[in-house]
């Protein structure tokens, strides 16, 4: 191997090989230009602004001219005495979302792949994708019209002479974590399955055919061929999701659970920060909250990546 590399290098200088590779993959490189620019503009250029978290920001003095105030901007987060419960809520919700999401997304991808009837497959796929395009505001309204006091469900129950129920009642606050998980799955599982579906399509049909000839049934093929082939994709997708594990889905938590009486079980970092910021427009505080979440996410993703690297270096992100 080393010998081959040496030979290659001796044949063509490194710079030339690079140029050759660039010219060979120029279409791919062109395709990469826009995402790289986007990433640079939106992720790297604003990065120095993070110092607002340590400053008493004043408009006319600007980000760099405003006075430093140490960790003062973090005080309100600590003073609330909710930091732990908020962080825990955010983390637990996201762990459940990622875990259930992955299982359902992979499951749906496998089912879609095994469907033989093309029309039925396409219709099912469309129905699975559709919820992804509905905003949480609309989902909240749909929920209210089905499960609310005058909603469809209660109308049916009253027609049947049964007692009405409301998931918005204070007594039912403890059931909201389940409601959230179900809604998140309903909204995201179909769309999330696209990546896995693409990965399944990429599996060489020869392997499946060989297994078929060897007498493997559908379950065996899924278990021994499809799922192991999806392993790298699953790990990468999970690692990417872990990158945002301390960020709550604000749209969902805010729109679905406007009721503060349901908050004990649904207050996450993002909703708390929003609530606090509504009474003030302190940019230093917002930056401090954002930095807190980013640092936690950074530590977590490094930790998870480290573990994956230890177990199987091939699957690590970096």
């Amino acid at each position: 191997m080393d010998l081959m590399r040496k030979n290659k290098t001796s044949k063509a200088p490194r710079g030339q090989t690079l140029l050759k590779n660039v010219s060979k993959n120029r279409t791919l490189i062109w395709m990469l230009v826009i995402p790289v620019i986007m990433c640079f503009v939106f992720c790297y250029i604003p990065m120095p602004g993070v110092i607002i978290a340590f400053k008493k920001y004043e408009y006319m003095k600007g980000i760099f001219g405003s006075e430093w105030n140490g960790f003062d901007n973090f005080r309100y987060l600590i003073m609330s005495k909710k930091l732990w419960s908020l962080t825990r809520n955010t983390l637990l919700y996201n762990i459940v979302f990622i875990a259930t999401g992955t299982v359902f997304q992979v499951g749906l991808a496998v089912i879609l792949n095994e469907m033989l009837h093309v029309k039925f497959k396409k219709i099912s796929q469309s129905f699975m994708f559709l919820p992804h395009f509905i905003s949480w505001v609309v989902v909240a309204t749909i929920m209210l019209n089905i499960f609310g006091d005058h909603g469809v469900l209660n109308q049916i129950l009253s027609k049947l002479g049964l007692e009405s129920v409301s998931i918005y009642a204070y007594e039912n606050a403890s059931k909201w974590p389940i409601v959230m998980v179900l809604l998140k799955l309903w909204k995201g599982a179909g769309y999330g399955s696209v990546v896995y579906l693409a990965a399944i399509v990429g599996i060489s049909p020869e392997i499946n055919e060989a297994a078929k000839i060897d007498g493997a049934n559908i379950w065996q093929r899924i278990w021994y061929i499809t799922l192991p082939s999806l392993k790298p994709t699953i790990i990468i997708m999970t690692l990417l999701s872990v990158g945002g594990i301390f960020r709550g889905d604000f749209g969902m938590f805010y729109q679905l659970v406007k009721g503060q009486h349901l908050m004990e079980s649904s207050d996450v970092l993002d909703t708390y920060i929003y609530r606090t910021m509504m009474s003030t427009s302190n940019m230093g505080w917002s930056a401090a909250a954002g930095l807190y979440q980013s640092v936690l996410c950074f530590v977590t993703i490094n930790l998870v990546n480290y573990i994956v690297k230890k177990v199987d270096p091939d699957y690590a992100l970096y």
Partner: peptide, 10 residues
């Protein structure tokens, strides 16, 4: 005050 407002808001 922001923390207090946050609590009241709940």
């Amino acid at each position: 005050l922001a923390v207090i407002d946050g609590i009241v808001g709940e």
